[in-house]
């Protein structure tokens, strides 16, 4: 692994109340590549990804120790504004969560809250983002329609377009395909593959085939600890740890 790390956790501990959810995690996600986080339910993979854009800040009763570095800078540094951090580190959630606004307004949302008012500029970015999310051809004639009119898979691609519109550097996917059908899943996976040319992607999934298909690197988490991290190919063909092998061959989980 020679790639530069874009975002990394160092000795990361995380607690919900008295529950120790992440235990001394060391994990570096290489730039412009896809890193998959796999592991059985409750292993802390969703919690981990939500620490990367400080989304857990808004959850009461949580505590974090250790460091998370974005381009080498600690994201918990007082200098680092969590609002600006979340613009740089975008997130796509498990369940598609379009806002009850038009398709256009959904994609333009992030730009508008950052002060962009120029109509031409908004239209340009909305089109570009929808094209990147492979949704443009399906919605270009109905941008004024409510986003709820789209199918589940389309809604998820809309949420991806919405995340892309603010030009993040990292995009976090929290089990993005668990609520959509297989055909829509294939399209989203395809999309994730193409995104890595410009963005650093981290994806949480409990679907091992998905991890094998889309990612360059895979981290296997178990009970809040990192069991193994490496090339996806290595992890899936010649894992070092026995536990990893047992998990990916489906002996538990």
């Amino acid at each position: 692994m020679t790639a530069r790390s874009k975002i990394e956790a160092r000795k990361l501990d995380f607690f919900y109340g008295s529950k120790h959810v992440l235990k001394g995690l060391d994990l570096a996600c290489p730039e412009k590549s896809v890193t998959a986080i796999i592991g059985p339910s409750g292993c802390g993979k969703s919690t981990f990804i939500r620490t990367l854009n400080r989304m857990n800040d808004v959850v009461a009763g949580t505590r974090l120790a250790g460091r998370i570095l974005l381009d080498g800078a600690d994201i918990h540094d007082p200098e680092m504004d969590p609002v600006e951090l979340r613009r740089r580190v975008g997130m796509v959630f498990q369940k598609p969560n379009p806002f009850p606004k038009s398709i256009f307004d959904n994609v333009a949302y992030g730009l508008r809250i950052n002060g962009e008012r120029r109509r031409g500029r908004l239209e340009e970015v909305v089109e570009k983002s929808l094209r990147e999310a492979a949704l443009w051809d399906e919605v270009k004639d109905r941008l004024r329609e409510n986003a709820f009119a789209l199918s589940g898979g389309q809604q998820q691609r809309l949420c991806i377009a919405r995340a892309l519109a603010v030009r993040p550097e990292v995009i976090l996917f929290d089990e993005p395909c668990s609520a959509i059908d297989p055909i829509a899943t294939a399209r989203v996976e395809d999309l994730i593959q193409r995104l890595k040319t410009e963005y650093t992607v981290v994806i949480v999934t409990h679907n091992m085939q998905q991890a094998a298909r889309v990612s360059d690197y895979t981290a296997f988490l178990m009970l809040g600890e990192l069991v193994e991290f490496g090339d996806t190919k290595t992890i899936f063909t010649a894992p070092v740890r026995k536990m990893t092998e047992e998990y990916i061959t489906g002996r538990f989980g």
Partner: peptide
């Protein structure tokens, strides 16, 4: 839904922006 608030925050909205819009 909490997803409206989280979705806005994840795009770099401040808390008040998320609530207001």
């Amino acid at each position: 839904p909490a997803a409206y608030r989280e979705g806005a925050l994840a795009l770099g909205a401040t808390k008040w922006q998320a609530i207001r819009t």
